[in-house]
Design a protein around this nucleic acid. Structure first.
Length: 637
RNA sequence: GCCGAUGUAGCUCAACGGUAGAGCAACUGACUUGUAAUCAGUAGGUUGCCGGUUCAAGUCCGGCCAUCGGCUCCA
């Protein structure tokens, strides 16, 4: 059996010649979609030789793994095109990302949107040449020499930080890039791609480093999938909550208060309905609502640790009389210190705990100008915030209770099941590492107990404790972080909170911070994008619009509207002297759930013609039937 | 904060450095209407703000403000 080895190819044992490549073994797989191989579970190039006893699996372009390789290769193709078109541009890194890829360049002049068509055209030429993509292995020193000769300073820097003695370089045509790989076998595999946007990005994401020029793009296994993706992007644009906010007259922003929304009457209805819903749940889940100050002397922030850890995100101020002096007050960015003061008001017994304090107080955070984004990233907001003070031994049950509430709320609001992340100790933190690890474990166990799959988000916790972050998927498949549950051993210590335990001795309570909707502002933004503005009846600013057909039926239309208003519905009347088609169109565009039409026919029968939003057909109902229908639309909770 | 782009009527958008326009909305009038746009007319602007270049600036240049796309899902 000289020169033969035994391997397993796609689950089948075979004998092949020594030195055969993965690509040779997988010939015929995937119908041209074969882009790479998995050998012994590791993704490799098709050119990779296979050893004795190996398991070889195909990686196809439309699999998640294949797509990642495809995109990474497309990033290389783009870099090649860029360097051909723009001499003097250095390459840095260019990974595949969730929905595509990017490549960061050190360019004498940052790229503009206008550059993209040219780059894309060159990419198509290079793809058309079907250049072979070859992997070369070499010593780190040799690679450093090569990239230094090319003037690629960033690559040299990357190489100097690598541990491996040998590194890989990929070559396509006369262009090469330091890269771990794997890659598709040739540029001809890259067909369905598009460059999307340009952006500035710091080298290694650190603002102390030079600003690079980033180009974003995406690629897919087929033109059809690319077109579908672009369609989704367009859909997302249509559903942009900022656009809907304007069209549906919900809210607006004015430059005189960047990052702070003005909620118009219609938007305010949504805002207050959401609050009311959470309030109803608070009764059931045992929370007590409080109202606390917005402005506190700095000494409070010094005690809570915000002064040290959060001051750069706070609005600091002073009273008008002495305005010129140093600011001695801070607008609250969080409710927790205020709640600690409420806790401290009385001597607490273990019998009083858990104490659950809820607060819809307005919070202000000095977010950097560049990160503001509609309602989803604001400087002024309210949260459905609560703090739970409890015994160490009650923490598990309290977290269970809140995870339960999370499930209930997101189901009631029409979202899919949330996914969890456990955010652990950040660099900037208060408290000992031991305490941190202990609280992280408590949260992890609660997640498991409640059937939440989770991933660990290292170093992303709050400065005072680890967090559970809950991500909710919307209708377009995007995930939003909304709910959060955070454990805090630090504030109780800083405020010297205590209770008297069963044996009469003082003990330290644990504090849990939590919000279900997160900020109401952000939640409304997400809800609008999730629903496209078509809200459930109970949240609709205008629930019923009564349309009259002519002047003659105005009194009857008014009667119908009043009837529904007495039943508690939010009703608008459209008695204008306009054609019915126009009124219906406008009611549809305003996304009113129930469109009630009355003409002489309905007036004679004392009934209505009901058209539901987005439903083309009409129903004839009596007034009683209509009232009963409205009565059934009860809000959740 | 940093990089890039954008800012024209309430909204969506036009306007080779040479008199700022259209559609929708608003207002007035006619039409009395049957399930996604009836017709006609009227009015609406210090082109984000400040400065500069020019005989002439919405347009070119600079500063500021705001908005939009981004700012480590690592070679």
């Amino acid at each position: 059996m000289e020169g033969k080895i035994s391997v397993t190819v796609a689950g089948r044992p075979v004998q092949v010649a020594h030195g055969a490549s993965a690509g040779q073994l997988l010939k015929g797989f995937g119908n041209g979609r074969l882009v790479a191989a998995r050998v012994n579970g590791k993704p490799v190039d098709l050119s990779c030789p296979v050893g004795e006893g190996a398991t070889v699996e195909p990686v196809l372009a439309d699999s998640p793994e294949g797509l990642e390789i495809l995109r990474h290769s497309t990033a290389h193709l783009m870099a090649q095109a860029v360097q051909q078109l723009f001499p003097g541009v250095q390459v840095t890194i260019g990974p595949a990302i969730e929905e595509g890829f990017y490549y960061d360049f050190a360019a004498p002049r940052p790229f503009a949107l206008d550059d993209l068509p040219r780059i894309e055209a060159r990419m198509r030429e290079l793809a058309g040449l079907d250049l072979k993509i070859e992997r070369l292995e070499m010593s780190r020193e040799e690679a450093v020499a090569r990239f230094a000769a090319l003037g690629e300073r960033y690559k040299v820097e990357i190489l100097s930080q690598l541990q491996e003695p040998r590194v890989s370089v990929y070559r396509q045509g006369d262009w090469m890039d330091l890269c771990r790989g794997p890659h598709v076998p040739s540029t001809g595999h890259l067909q369905a791609f598009k460059l999307l946007s340009v952006a500035g990005a710091y080298w290694r994401g650190d603002e102390r480093n030079p600003m690079l020029s980033r180009i974003y793009g995406t690629s897919f296994a087929s033109e059809r999938e690319l077109a579908e993706h672009l369609r989704l992007l367009e859909l997302a644009r249509q559903r942009d909550h900022r656009k809907l906010g304007r069209e549906l007259e919900l809210f607006f922003f004015d430059p005189v208060s960047p990052g702070s929304a003005f909620f118009l009457p219609r938007g305010t209805v949504i805002y207050r309905e959401l609050e009311s819903y959470i309030r109803r749940l608070y009764r059931r889940y045992g929370f007590a609502e409080v109202i606390t100050p917005e402005l506190f002397r700095n000494e409070l922030w010094q005690r809570s640790g915000h002064w040290e850890m959060f001051r750069e995100n706070m609005f600091l101020t002073s009273d008008g009389e002495r305005g010129a002096g140093a600011p001695d007050y801070g607008l609250k960015p969080m409710n927790c210190p205020g709640h600690a003061l409420i806790y401290r008001l009385e001597k607490r017994s273990y019998r009083d705990l858990p104490l659950r304090l809820a607060d819809f107080g307005r919070l202000h955070r000095a977010e950097r100008a560049g990160v503001l984004h509609g309602l989803t990233r604001v400087r002024a907001m309210a949260q459905d915030d609560a703090h739970i003070f409890c015994l160490e031994g009650q923490v598990g049950a309290e977290i269970d209770r809140n995870l339960q509430m999370v499930k209930e709320v997101y189901q009631a609001l029409g979202f899919g099941p949330p996914k969890a992340r456990l955010a652990t100790m950040p660099d900037k933190h208060l408290g000992s590492e031991e305490l941190w690890r202990q609280s992280e474990a408590v949260l992890a166990q609660a997640l498991e107990r409640n059937g939440f799959g989770y991933v660990v988000n290292r170093g992303e916790g709050a400065f005072y404790g680890p967090k559970i972050e809950l991500y909710v998927p919307d209708a377009l498949g995007r995930n939003w972080q909304l709910a959060t549950i955070q454990l805090d051993y630090n504030l109780p210590q800083r405020f010297d909170l205590s209770y008297i335990d069963a044996s009469g001795l003082p003990a330290r309570p644990v504090m849990i911070h939590r919000a279900i909707l997160g900020s109401i502002e952000r939640f409304i933004g997400v809800l609008l994008e999730h629903t496209g503005g078509v809200l459930p009846f109970w949240l609709a600013p205008e629930q019923v619009r009564v349309l009259s057909l002519s002047e003659k039926v105005e009194p009857y239309a008014a009667e119908v509207a009043e009837l529904l208003e007495r039943r508690g519905a939010r009703v608008a009347r459209d008695l204008r002297n306009e054609k019915l088609g126009l009124k219906v169109r406008q009611a549809e565009l305003a996304k009113v759930p129930y469109i009630v039409v009355v003409g002489e026919r309905e007036a004679a029968q004392r009934g209505v013609s009901l058209r539901r939003l987005r439903g083309a057909k009409q129903e004839s109902l009596s007034l009683e039937q209509l009232a009963a229908l409205i009565g059934q639309e009860a809000p959740p909770g």
